[in-house]
Design a protein around this nucleic acid. Sequence first.
RNA 1: GGCAGGAUAGCUCAGUGGUAGAGCAGAGGACUCAUAAGCCUUUGGUCGGCGGUUCAAAUCCGCCUCCUGCUACCA
Length: 678
Amino acid sequence: MRSILVTSALPYANGPIHIGHLVEYLQTDIWVRFQKLRGNRAIYICADDTHGTSITISARAQGCSEEEFIAEMSEAHQRDFAGFDIEFDNYGSTHSQENRAHCTTLWKALRDAGMVVEKEIEQLFDVEAETFLADRFVRGTCPNCNSTNQPGDNCGNCGATYSPAELIDPVSTLSKSRPEIRKAVHLFVQIEQLHDFLEDWTQSGALQTESANYVKNYFLHEPLQDWDISRPGPYFGFEIPDSPGNYWYVWFDAPIGYMASTTQWCQANKESFDDWWRSPDAEIHHFIGKDIQYFHTLFWPAMLKTAGFSLPTKVHIHGFLTFDGEKMSKSKGTFIRASNYLKHLDPAYLRYYYATKLSHKIDDLDLNREEFAARINSDLVGKVVNLASRTAKFVAGTGLSAEYPEDGGLFAEAAAQGDAIAEAYEHCDYSRAMRLIMELADKANPYIEQNAPWELRKDPAKGKQLQDVCSVGLNLFRQLAIYLAPVLPQLAKQSGDLLDAPVVSWDDAKTPLTGTAVNKFKHMMQRVDPKNIEAMIEESREEASTAHRDTDVSPVDSDEALKAEPIAPEITIDDFAKVDLRVARVLAAEDVPDARKLIKLTLGLGGEERRTVFAGIKQAYDDPKQLVGRLVVCVANLAPRKMKFGTSEGMVVASGPGGKEIFLLSPDSGAQPGQRVH
RNA sequence: GGCAGGAUAGCUCAGUGGUAGAGCAGAGGACUCAUAAGCCUUUGGUCGGCGGUUCAAAUCCGCCUCCUGCUACCA
């Protein structure tokens, strides 16, 4: 029997669970349920990730304390998870005494190993909010290219990286006030000291090959940078014991939350923490998304190694969720909260659908609404549940045959497939497992067809035969329910209720039930009604736009764009006058073959005045010729910028998030090249 | 441009040396126990392209094209 500790990434306590999160929690829950069904000792450990400035800001916005805020969020998270039959052995919080204690232990180990250094850095301080500002809470003008309203760490315009203190005219997004530069001592972990160890460990088989390659090529090919691990107070988190006034950065204490939550579980179950985190006999499996590989494949193992804890046996990394082939979108209503889904659809649908899509690969996973309905209706209702539904009622009075009848080898074959299905689950190849299971279902239905219990029923002399055929059908159904139990715990339970035989072990699929009672058949699963999917999406869409409902005439626009990029700090008319916008005609437009986003434009400002501009609009305007002749608006007095493919002498103005969604601005007809835009 | 992952039937994908597969969708049929489920039959593919290794290549090797993700140029 293996001892297996399993975690999912800790959801951040700053927002509700949505169906994208659920990919991970369902993937993990299925794996844990599978391990338990196989008779292994497995525990599923999770917690809310509760620290950091974002939490403080959200709490203030609600007018409550951070503690109240995270308590409420934790409750909401756990309610959502429970609604999807996600069953944790312990659900904790990073804001716990257990976590503080473990943080202290790991911290001491890093100190003792000589890996912690102090550096004085300049950081912006918001005087009104009385807090140092993380990079993303500062916006200002890029010191390199003078683009306004850029984030605090790197310029979205020219790509330059800098510290927030270097920004020109910085503004705090918290108070809208101008922050001042203050010096502060930060603590850094010199993770580079473990470079060789990490090089070995990341290639040791604990990671999927794609991930091992990524980490190697992207981070480990050069010295690892020191990791800034502290934040000066006030900061919602734990104060560093040997560095008063400084707090551990949220990403330091978040993974340690796995340990803290384990400790709580151990205390409740009288187990030893060290049996799980310091024992070669216990496995540790982390399930995470591809966005946080960095922390789990470098920092986290480095911390564990230094402090003498067990290293992760495996880090299972999955991709993101798309909806109908596109990124989830609030305005399209495909950014669906878990609680909203549960109002409209059965959680079993999503559990099964994700299972049919998940493999050990890091590929993104698409939720296609038509395929979703087709899979559930065809596989689960049409094939699996139908087996019970078309046989159970014929033997409700008599029960199952006393001896398992001849079935042409169907039961034995399905029993023999158990190992292959189990192996697929073990390797997180759920799509393969589902395929193997449905192959079995595809063999069971023809058996019923050929033996036509509805005909046997008409002849009283064939009562025994009728009972036999239905005994076969119900046993085949039960096998499927057992194999599907990790994915569909409710179906397994319903199967147990129908046949008076609860599913407790994977090996239950090896032995047929005989001579037991059969209860009255009850519907086990409704077919998916596409109307419910549409209603769910519609509700999500409405939620996204509730803020704009004042008039019944004006169109309802989403606030997505504004939220993604808040309005810049106020400027004077003189500031605006510095920007010389001109109407220009596109005289020539050519593709830049080596660039993925750039088109080379020659703009005419009237007369002989020309500008060569490289514009990053290729994906939206893939045929440059279509641009020739049209009028655009350009920034005519922008400092020229040398680029890989030539010098860009200005820029054309456009809106949109990027990619295919870029929209060039056009003047109304009548405008002439060279005219200034006031 | 760099790195990674892909390209097989209309769709989603199996298939790592031995005559191209499944499910769904499409077409036809028989049945009617079952949630308009299920069963039988059937249409459909120069397995991205070119070359090589081999008795034999979807599969191994090389080159190329295209797609996706990250990253850079950029907005």
